[in-house]
Write a protein that binds this DNA or RNA. Structure first.
Lengths: 207, 207
DNA sequence: CGGCAAACTTGCACACACTGCACCGTTCTC
DNA sequence: GAGAACGGTGCAGTGTGTGCAAGTTTGCCG
């Protein structure tokens, strides 16, 4: 009952999908991507191996599926900002909302182990592009720009997602441990400050 | 003979790799990704199927491999700009060099047919990330910034590659046919102008 | 030149990914 | 309660991707 918009059947489907994605992420982050078979993932989610492929076309897709929730957080946080606020400022707040989400942190930490698997990385990036598109639609909805004539909505959305990715990479120490040991919200602010400055380098003199 | 730095053996290897990548791109763009087998690609390149996997771990990787040449063009064009030029301006010129490369246009047009295959798209994006890293190194080499403390090099490189991607997507009509029918260099300029303006929306009134 | 050693190619075997098809059970609709 | 629709499952088959053990080419040095 409750809100019967999603019927009983649809809820079961969503539950199975979530269970498969969660099992895939957990098993692969624990044992490594290539040491986990689809059969094991299906077992952990208590469905038949064949059923796995009714939801995902590959292991990688299942592992990355959880990112969709971050997309929702990002878009909703952006949409919730006042419409007269400058777009980049709204995006800064939206990115803060994402990195503040405990589920996002959890996922980032699990993903950390899985870096270096090219195929998985590739699918991860595909998930980011999906984020970009969803966010671009929200920008269009606010600004009323015509995406066929104006590439601003796509660009600013892509820039925001890219900025988030760069911030997370930096935070994970992909380019060496940052001696300042900054946290994720701080790095997001740095990224957006660079965008605000038109990407003009203002690097301080080296220590 | 000639410059013997790359020995006879290495040249053969590079030739085989190129032949495999070219065959993969050609066959897949003609018949569709899923209607081409590794065996056919190997045949077209005149090697055994097993040999294919000595060079690439998947069909997708082979199809996308050609992008490495664009990376070289991008990085070299950036490095060739005067060191006292602002980084974004150098990047603008470097992006122009890429889109002016006939090989790049050829590849973009072939890839056009292959959009919509999620797995291939994913690997394509992975190739872009490789571009970002190479470009970031060039930025580090010019500015002397410490990538462990400063995320500017990674960010500006990622922004440039993302901008190129957005421009190409727009050019291919992913968001509807642009009535202005702009060319690629023009779109690159628009992208960089948006970055220069700090991504502040200055959308003109709709027609 | 002769011959060794490293590296590339290839065939074989195998595990696994992924798909089409058909069947069964459950859920929705009337 | 009957029929339609839909999701779950087993089966069979194709194709991917890898380890292993050859055979062959290339580079190197005595």
């Amino acid at each position: 009952m409750a809100e019967c918009a999603p019927g009983r059947r649809e809820r079961k489907k969503a539950a199975t999908r979530t269970a498969l994605a969660a099992a895939a992420l957990r098993l692969c982050s624990e044992h490594g991507l290539e040491h986990v078979t689809v059969e094991q993932i299906a077992d952990a989610a208590d469905v038949a191996p064949r059923t796995f492929f009714n939801y995902f076309t590959s292991k990688e897709e299942a592992v990355v599926a959880g990112n969709a929730t971050s997309t929702d957080v990002l878009v909703e946080a952006f949409a919730a900002r006042p419409a007269d606020e400058p777009v980049p400022e709204s995006l800064r707040h939206a990115l803060h909302a994402v990195v503040a989400d405990p589920q996002h942190r959890e996922r980032v930490l699990r993903m950390r182990v899985l870096r270096g698997h090219p195929t998985l990385l590739a699918h991860q990036l595909a998930a980011f592009v999906a984020q970009e598109r969803a966010l671009a639609e929200a920008v269009v909805a606010r600004t009323g720009a015509d995406p066929a004539r104006d590439l601003y909505p796509m660009l600013v959305a892509a820039a925001a997602v890219t900025g988030l990715r760069v911030a997370v990479q930096h935070w994970l120490g992909d380019h060496g441990a940052d001696p300042r040991d900054p946290d994720l919200p701080q790095l997001v602010d740095e990224v957006m400050a660079h965008f605000d400055a038109g990407l003009r380098a203002v690097t301080a003199a080296p220590a």
